[in-house]
Structure formats: structure tokens, C-alpha cells
Nucleic acid binder design. Structure first.
Lengths: 330, 330
DNA sequence: CTGTTAGCGCGTTCAA
DNA sequence: TTGAACGCGCTAACAG
């Protein structure tokens, strides 16, 4: 309720002096400073940040666009974002878009109307579907893929997928199923690329019946598993494009009487917390989720502050984690 | 970049007319309206929301305080919040507090400095530790417990725990272990109360060795399981105070060679997505997570708008879901 | 129906 | 070192 004006009145100084006492105390005499501080304490003054930000033409907030906040990988990335933002004095606005471009637009609108300074996109860019980057809107993708048409931070999805496949192939598998995300999802595309490259390098013929498309949810993993269970010529291993689907698949396989890893090996992607505690513990690719978020925030901050972005595409290292869903051979 | 003034200049009207054309078009003549719309389109004018909000002394944003965004129950509650907020024209600021009261204060500070209009607290209130409610700050707890000293939305935790226990006791169990949260956590306290009431009602003596305190994480469930596994006189059933710990416990038990549910029954709490896909599928208490969030937002909005809050404590129904981690007896 | 004007709270000139 | 005055973009009160 109390404004800078009231503080000035009580302290017996001008509002400019109060303002200076707050932002540049060294430019104020000791006597004045003390009077101001006393007055501030007396009326319990809190500066009105809305006024300050309005004046500064900065909202000191960013919005993060996430397809589903109740997804463990995404929420971990957001933890990293929140942590970095908080330290930089930025608030983070949550935009749970549920894969709706309309909702994305509504949220991007926040920066167009100056309620927010920039956007961190967690959904990979789908050409022709996703919002195109706007030069007036600072934007960074925190879970990018190859060919993102704006700044991004990511891992080498294709390379990681290929590494997983090489491991599986090294264990003697030649019929390897894939549980993919939606066909047009760039994560699907990049990881699929790694799958194909590994097959080709090993001289294993491609069989399209071994590819099942899900949507990164537990349920779709179960569905995919039942597909594989019904096949005449089953794969001996499955490469799932995320952990949720892998965990769902293990359940689905078990229901069908197929044991993991004895009858079938299975690998995941992301290394969410549950991967370690599934039964069997999941062999997977660990993404540096929090790091992805922190790094993306730094890039966005650079853009917001109008500084030059050195690296418009940052590729962070991943780690391949072998656990129990692939047998301990060799 | 373009302001209302420029639009007025181009349209050849006053800024007041532009303002009215935007907020109350009926109070503007057709001719003027068209001129304004043409000018708006021409310069691609977007109203500056920061200025508008500043003028309205409303930020149209709320902050949600959550101990850990990467917790499936919390993130689902947040989905509900976000959905309701978006519809009401409010933005939601994310405050991942990591159980730190200092961070909570930093975020509450946002409403004291008018960057936010109110707070939705997801962490239950711990007397003497949590922030005390401040009459100047609209605040609602979205995952409340009994005796929350400010507005809250919750389920009957004690009743739900008691219902679980009665089910277990009805199946013939007399030695029932508990995996609790931290001892001072109100969710722990309320659910523990239900545990004790059920024991007492059934005339089963209390054994403190059967109570293990965790922290609602998967890992702590594993640790608790190993405790039970090492006991001379093991319980025949375990009541876990959330699903994560139950799932961790199942893993820990399996490692120790104890089968669920053949050797030991186990129940969870929350009904997160994974509960259905764990092995065995978890018998648990389904909380209406999204509903909790939506309802809490409505209460908060009432407070923010200065209207009378009819129900300062709303208790939503829960559902007891029997799956496979308790055998299908009787 | 329309235009002029004041003022929201703050930071920042510019003089003194 | 200090204070008076201006203006950020907008809405509301008032006068026409």
C-alpha cells in the first residue's frame, strides 16, 4: 500500500533520494540513507515491482512451454530451468500446452504483450506444425533436435540411439523392435535415424513390422508390447524411445508371459527416477535433464539481454546406463 | 513497440477512443471502430499488459509453491491449477521450493511486491516451520491436511488411511507395517492417525517397530523394505503413505526374496500413473489430483477478488482402488 | 459518442 | 549530494 512517496514524506527527503537509497546507496549521504531506512521499516515499505518492471520495460519473467508437466523428464528439465531462473532474478511462468499449438500461441502472446521476456520451448520443433521462430521473441528450445530453426540445447539423439543399438547388436540380437513416439515427433525422427544407422552398419535388414508407434506414455508401451507378443517371429530385443514406454512394455510383456530380460531384452531412454526402480531395472540413456534446462535458460537470458549468442546449438553429453533389462552377457 | 498513442495518431482519433475500442467497443461509433481496427492491424499493435496490469493494480498471475515439481502427484495437481488459471486469464508462476522455507519466502515476496496476486501452497502446513498465513496475502493450500490455519482443499487423509487399514485387517492381517513420510509432515500425521484408529478399532496392539519413516521418495521405499526384510517377525502387509515409496518397497522386497503379494501385501497412496503399471499393479488410494488443483484455484480467485469464501476447507472424495499388490481373497 | 487530462509507482534526467 | 519534473502505457473521470 505504501509507496515510495510516503517513504519520502516520512523520511523528509525527496522520492528521488529514496529511489537512490534503494538502488545506489553509495550515492546517498549516510544521514539521508539512515532516515530512509528508518522510514522504510516504519511503514513496512515494499517497492512495487510491477511499476519498476513497467518502467524498465522488462518483466523479469520467462514462460516455459511444456507438452505435459506431469512427465518426469520434462518436469526435471523444468527444475533446472527454475533453479537457474531464480538465481538470475527471473520468475518462470508455466505453460502446460498439452500439445496444442493454440495454447502455445496463447502463451507466446504473453511475451508479445510484455508480460514475459522470452520463451523456453520443451517440445521439439515440428516443421509446418510448431510455431515458427519470431525474431522479436527470444526463444530457446531446451530439448531440441537436429535442425531446430532457432537456438537450442540438446543431446545427440541419433548418436545415443545408435549407441544403444550397437550395444544390443553386440549382444547378438538381430531382430530388434522399436517402440517409437509419434511418427512426426522430431525426437522420434532423430532416434529412428540412429536405429537405422546401426542396422545398416551391422548389415541387418530392416523390417518395418518391428517398428511400433506410441506416444511416450506408459499405456502406449503396454499396447506396443502386446503387438510384439502377438508376432509370429518376435524380436529378441526392444529399443524403446523413452522410459515410460519401456516400463509399460515390460508390464505388457509380463502379462503375455514373456520374461525380461530372459526372453526379451529392453532398453529405455531418458533415465527418469523410476528407471532404476522398475523390475528389472532399466538399461537406458541418461539425459542430463536439469543441465539441459539450466543451459537453455542461460542461452535465453543472453538473447533477452540482447547479447550475442555464441552457440546457437549446444549439444550436451549423454550417458548409456546398463542395468538389468538387458542381460549381463559376454 | 507501437503504443496506443501511435494507433490513435494513425486512426485520427484520441487515445481514449482507442482504449474504448479495445475494452468497450459498443461505446464507440462504427466509423471510429473501423478506423481504429485498421490502424491496429497496420502497425500490428499489441497492448502492453504490463502497463495495463500496473494501472489495474493486478498482476493476473499467481504463484504455486511446490516442494518438488518432479513429483508426479504434485505435477498432476499443478496441471489442474494451470488449466483453471488459464481459463480465468491468470498466469501461473512456478515456485519449486525444494522444501526450503527461505525459498518459499522469496516467492511469497512476489505477491508482497505485486508481481503476483496470490499463492497456492502444495506443501502441507507444519506449525512452527511453514510460513504463517498473512491476512494481506491471498493463500490457499491445495493439498491440505487437518488444521491448516488458512483456506485449504484436501481429501480426508485420516479416513482414507483408515479405510486402507480396514481392508488389510479384513483380509486377516494383524501385523501391518507402515512406511511413513517424515515424522513432522502433516500428511504423515493425518494418515498415521487413520492407521492408529484402525488398529485400535480392531483391537490390534500397536508395535512401534512396524513404523518406518521415509521421505516420500522411491529410494526411501527401498530402504524401508530392507528394514522389514531384516525383521525377525515380519509384517504380512505394508501400508505405504505414497505410491513412490510403495513401488520402491516392492523392489526392495523382491531383492530380499520376498514376493508381493504372495509373501507380503502392500498398498500405496495417491494413485499416480505408475501405480497401475508397477509389478504387481498397486492397490492404492486415488486422490483427485487435478480436481484438487482446480478447486484450490477457484478458492484463491475468490480471495483475490475480495469475495467471501464460503468454504474455507473443502474436502474432496477419494477412491480406494484395489489392484494386484494385495491378493484377491475372500 | 468523443477528446482532454490526471495519475498509477517508479527511475532518471537536469539543475542546483 | 539532493530535489523537481517528466514520462513509461494505459484507463477512468469529466467535459464537451
Amino acid at each position: 500500500m505504501s509507496s515510495i512517496r510516503e517513504v519520502a514524506r516520512i523520511a523528509g527527503v525527496s522520492i528521488a533520494t529514496v529511489s537512490r537509497a534503494l538502488s545506489t546507496p553509495d550515492k546517498v549521504s549516510k544521514a539521508a540513507l539512515e532516515k530512509v531506512q528508518a522510514a522504510i521499516a516504519k511503514v513496512n515499505y515494499r517497492p512495487n515491482m510491477m511499476a519498476r518492471n513497467f518502467r524498465a520495460v522488462r518483466s523479469y519473467s520467462i514462460v516455459v512451454l511444456v507438452p505435459n508437466i506431469a512427465n518426469l523428464f520434462f518436469s526435471t528439465v523444468i527444475r533446472g530451468i527454475e533453479d537457474a531462473a531464480q538465481q538470475a532474478g527471473y520468475a518462470v511462468l508455466l505453460g502446460d500446452t498439452r500439445d496444442s499449438v493454440k495454447r502455445e500461441k496463447d502463451y507466446v502472446n504473453l511475451v508479445e504483450t510484455r508480460q514475459s521476456d522470452g520463451v523456453l520451448q520443451l517440445r521439439p520443433h515440428i516443421p509446418g506444425v510448431s510455431l515458427e521462430p519470431n525474431p522479436h521473441i527470444p526463444m530457446v528450445n531446451a530439448c531440441g533436435c537436429e535442425n531446430t530453426p532457432y537456438a537450442s540445447v540438446r543431446i545427440d539423439n541419433a548418436g545415443a540411439a545408435q549407441a544403444v543399438m550397437e550395444y544390443l547388436i553386440g549382444q547378438g540380437h538381430t531382430r530388434i523392435g522399436v517402440i517409437a513416439g509419434k511418427a512426426d515427433n522430431p525426437h522420434t525422427i532423430d532416434r529412428y535415424k540412429g536405429y537405422m544407422q546401426a542396422l545398416e552398419a551391422a548389415g541387418i535388414p530392416f523390417d518395418k513390422n518391428l517398428v511400433v508407434y506410441g506416444d511416450f506414455t506408459l499405456r502406449s508401451g503396454v499396447v506396443a508390447a502386446s503387438h510384439f507378443a502377438r508376432m509370429k517371429e518376435r524380436p529378441s530385443a526392444i529399443f524403446s524411445m523413452n522410459d515410460e514406454m519401456a516400463i509399460g512394455a515390460i508390464q505388457g510383456l509380463r502379462t503375455a508371459g514373456i520374461r525380461v530380460p530372459e526372453d526379451m531384452s529392453i532398453t529405455g531412454f531418458d533415465d527418469i527416477e523410476f528407471a532404476r526402480y522398475s523390475d528389472p531395472a532399466l538399461t537406458t540413456v541418461a539425459q542430463p535433464a536439469e543441465e539441459l534446462g539450466k543451459t537453455a535458460f542461460q542461452s535465453l537470458l543472453t538473447l533477452i539481454e540482447g547479447r550475442e549468442l555464441q552457440n546457437s546449438e549446444i549439444v550436451l553429453p549423454y550417458e548409456f546406463v546398463v542395468r538389468k533389462s538387458t542381460p549381463n552377457r559376454r
